[in-house]
Nucleic acid binder design. Sequence first.
DNA 1: TGACATCCAATGCACGTGCATGTAAGTTTC
DNA 2: GAAACTTACATGCACGTGCATTGGATGTCA
Lengths: 128, 128
Amino acid sequence: MEAVVSEDVCTKWSETLRVYHTTSCELESELQERHELGLSEFEVLKILSRSCSKGGGKAKMKELEAEMYLSQSALSRTVTRLEKDGLVTRATCDFDRRAMFLMLTPAGQERYEAAQPTYMGVLRAHFA
Amino acid sequence: MEAVVSEDVCTKWSETLRVYHTTSCELESELQERHELGLSEFEVLKILSRSCSKGGGKAKMKELEAEMYLSQSALSRTVTRLEKDGLVTRATCDFDRRAMFLMLTPAGQERYEAAQPTYMGVLRAHFA
DNA sequence: TGACATCCAATGCACGTGCATGTAAGTTTC
DNA sequence: GAAACTTACATGCACGTGCATTGGATGTCA
């Protein structure tokens, strides 16, 4: 009884591990090879694209952080990389000068739209 | 139709991501805090413990590599750390002197048996 | 208003990982 | 048996990450 339950959770975990690993590896390499984007960079573009379309073109760092599985420091550096590539711009918030707004540049929007089908293709291949 | 399928695979992926992230983070921190073991270190001990009980006390690096989601180099260094902590020992194979046998030390066996309930506890909390 | 706590983002640092390469041992081909 | 190839593991290196800290801005309370 106990043993059955134990075996069951182990199986579930190793299944999760397998799916996560194969999918994230393929996402990573496909996005890198075809669009020069890491997975977390793509995720930032994805969230920005979504919130920009309804939020008037900007999102706060804190909002991004809450939606991603990434530490504050890692997110900060990811955004730095994206900014260096000209895909997003940072802007200080007028009302709270501690906070930063992020905005997709046209190049960022374009890059995201080019990469999105690749992303979806991998997901479909693994989950459909 | 297309949209529904798309939404579905996205949901599945983000669910996988969530489960993987929360579980692996908790495994990592619990194992580290209570037993001074990283997750991949624990995984090596786990596989060794299993194959030792039936295989006469040893396993080859290649076998480990095949059973883990870890590159050859990462595995090599993980084993180096375990060896430095006195939990496993390396031994060259007599028949193929390229290959390495790994063996759990008594301390390694002990550490694994102490950590295993912690590991199972986390899995049960997330999957049961 | 002044002192203190809280919050946001950036950065120094240590660490684990993957890729590419090195080294040594085994295998194949002629 | 020598040369070319393959296999097993270790290691140099670059990179992304998390933790802890810093610096600056905001909020709170007396």
